Simulated assay, not measured.
Amino acid sequence: MSRQENKRFLISVADPRSPISEAYRSLRTNIDFSSIDEKIQVILVTSAGPGEGKSTTIGNLAVTYAQSERKVVLIDADMRKPTEHHTFDVSNRIGLSSILSQQSSLDNAIQATNIENLSIITSGPIPPNPAEMMASKRMETLLQDLKNRFDIVLIDSPPLLAVTDAQIISTKVDGVIFVMDQGKVKRDIARKAKSGLDKVGARILGVVLNNIKRQKNEGYYYYYGNS
């Protein structure tokens, strides 16, 4: 199947005036104002399990940040089941795993998207040791380098309860956005996932609830709330 056939729909691009696009802009604003004294620059987006909308959320959030004329880079750190190269229709031949394994320079791995101000670092070839890569000093060095180059660094990680990657990355970022599909995830599962973040001292900026029906024919919307 081609990348184009797998391409994820980004409503912030397709219909920037829609209520859902406005909800993503509200999410961006809430993140901006979530800290008075500290700059929120590196943000991890994760979920308890698969299929809850974290990759769709981070893709649209990246677009809204770029639309506010900030220089944004989106990192696909889900090196087990990467999707962002499909979303933005770019190559995944070189990416995060290539940088961390020293098979590529950062400059070669950063790709432009068709959205102004938005760049992407795809996952790269799937490695045998994603968790070890996330925990490495090279990952910390990479994030520091990106902070010097970009205004906003967004990281898409694997689900919390599937593997340890998200917990590891959460200790290296300024904050975490936790995505939940209200109609899918059970409360005890969500609590278990949040507990995993709490154990490593992660800073949870808020929770995005998606697939909440507003009224008939109004579709879905996203809600952000501090944890």
Rank of each mutant, 00 (worst) to 15 (best):
R93E: 15
E116H: 07
R80Q: 05
T87V: 13
A48S: 14
N217I: 03
E52Y: 02
V63Y: 08
K7G: 03
P127K: 11
S101P: 00
S136Q: 04
K7I: 01
K186W: 05
E140H: 08
R3P: 01
T57K: 02
V42L: 04
G53P: 09
G59K: 02
V173C: 12
Y220S: 09
E22K: 10
V73A: 00
E140A: 13
K172E: 10
E140I: 12
D188S: 13
L61F: 04
D107S: 13
G59A: 15
P158W: 10
K54N: 07
R191L: 14
L160I: 15
S104N: 06
E218V: 04
A202I: 01
F88W: 10
E84H: 12
A162M: 15
V207R: 00
S97T: 13
Y222V: 15
K7C: 05
P128R: 11
S68G: 11
I155E: 07
P159I: 06
R138P: 01
K54R: 11
V45A: 10
N6Y: 05
H85I: 10
E52A: 01
S18G: 10
D165E: 09
A202C: 05
M1A: 13
S123H: 07
R191G: 01
I177S: 09
D145G: 00
D107Y: 02
P127A: 08
R93N: 10
A62F: 05
M180P: 00
L100M: 01
T164V: 13
A112D: 13
N211F: 12
Y222D: 09
T122E: 08
Y221W: 06
I155C: 08
S227L: 15
E218M: 14
G49I: 06
I169H: 02
A77T: 05
S21I: 06
H86P: 00
S105G: 14
D32E: 13
H85S: 10
R3Y: 13
N211I: 02
P50D: 09
T171K: 15
N148K: 13
M134I: 03
A135K: 08
A135E: 11
K184M: 15
D156E: 06
K213Y: 11
I43Y: 02
V163H: 10
V207E: 01
S170R: 04
P19S: 08
L10K: 09
Y220C: 02
R93V: 12
